[in-house]
Simulated scan of single mutants.
Amino acid sequence: MAVAVQIVLDCAHPSAQAAFWQIALDYRLDPPPPGFTSWDDAKKAWGLPEDWDQVSAISDPDGVGPRLFFQQVPEGKTVKNRLHLDVSVGRGIQDPEERWATVVARVERLTAAGAAVVEERRHEHGDHWMVMTDPEGNEFCVQ
């Protein structure tokens, strides 16, 4: 039996981080629980405090990739990530120029959504990727 994986990300603003990573990964916001038309309706019904930006989650619409769960924590990011995500938009594209154009297009889209470019890297064996940070400063790569 396969084990399901959920990646949990500590952050200051779960809703904003979830919105950014939806764009990065082509994921979707988890739908509200059965019987509710929105998460706000569910949270009101459950009597949760008005500060609802404590958690958020997104999932792969195809059910292949792991769910990402964002939880609010009081402390900010202070050091380099020990784990980072690779956004592999060029995987399977054989032509190097087309693959890099696909990477650059995603980088531009993510920059418009609040990411920052750290540096472009190229491996001696031909791999080529962009190191970026998300809106809260977490490092990730686009390849």
Results as ranks from 00 to 15, higher is better:
residue 60 D to R: 03
residue 97 E to P: 00
residue 40 D to L: 05
residue 19 A to C: 06
residue 125 H to D: 14
residue 94 Q to D: 11
residue 61 P to W: 07
residue 141 C to R: 05
residue 110 L to R: 04
residue 121 R to K: 15
residue 10 D to K: 05
residue 79 V to C: 09
residue 71 Q to T: 12
residue 82 R to D: 09
residue 133 T to N: 10
residue 100 W to R: 15
residue 133 T to P: 11
residue 89 V to P: 04
residue 14 P to N: 13
residue 81 N to L: 09
residue 122 R to W: 07
residue 82 R to Q: 09
residue 142 V to K: 08
residue 23 I to V: 15
residue 16 A to Q: 15
residue 57 A to E: 14
residue 74 P to W: 00
residue 27 Y to C: 02
residue 80 K to L: 13
residue 53 D to F: 05
residue 58 I to N: 04
residue 112 A to E: 08
residue 135 P to A: 11
residue 74 P to K: 01
residue 27 Y to K: 06
residue 131 V to A: 13
residue 34 P to Y: 13
residue 22 Q to I: 13
residue 124 E to W: 08
residue 119 E to M: 12
residue 111 T to K: 14
residue 125 H to S: 14
residue 65 G to I: 06
residue 27 Y to P: 07
residue 36 F to A: 03
residue 42 A to I: 01
residue 123 H to S: 12
residue 29 L to S: 12
residue 133 T to E: 12
residue 118 V to Y: 06
residue 35 G to V: 02
residue 142 V to Y: 10
residue 122 R to C: 09
residue 51 D to L: 02
residue 130 M to A: 12
residue 69 F to M: 14
residue 132 M to D: 02
residue 106 R to W: 07
residue 88 S to L: 15
residue 48 L to H: 03
residue 92 G to W: 04
residue 83 L to C: 07
residue 98 E to N: 08
residue 3 V to E: 00
residue 11 C to F: 03
residue 110 L to V: 01
residue 52 W to H: 08
residue 63 G to V: 01
residue 101 A to I: 06
residue 123 H to M: 11
residue 45 A to P: 02
residue 100 W to F: 15
residue 79 V to F: 10
residue 24 A to N: 07
residue 85 L to I: 13
residue 11 C to G: 01
residue 11 C to S: 04
residue 111 T to V: 13
residue 129 W to L: 07
residue 66 P to V: 00
residue 112 A to Q: 06
residue 17 Q to D: 12
residue 37 T to N: 09
residue 67 R to H: 09
residue 110 L to E: 03
residue 12 A to Q: 15
residue 129 W to V: 04
residue 129 W to F: 13
residue 40 D to Q: 07
residue 111 T to L: 11
residue 99 R to A: 15
residue 22 Q to R: 15
residue 29 L to T: 12
residue 60 D to E: 06
residue 134 D to I: 10
residue 84 H to D: 11
residue 16 A to N: 12
residue 33 P to S: 09
residue 72 Q to E: 14
residue 40 D to T: 06
residue 64 V to Y: 14
residue 38 S to N: 03
residue 136 E to G: 05
residue 136 E to N: 02
residue 47 G to V: 01
residue 19 A to H: 13
residue 61 P to Q: 06
residue 142 V to G: 10
residue 17 Q to K: 07
residue 62 D to E: 15
residue 13 H to A: 15
residue 20 F to G: 03
residue 1 M to A: 00
residue 143 Q to W: 15
residue 1 M to S: 01
residue 114 G to E: 08
residue 124 E to F: 09
residue 109 R to D: 13
residue 54 Q to H: 11
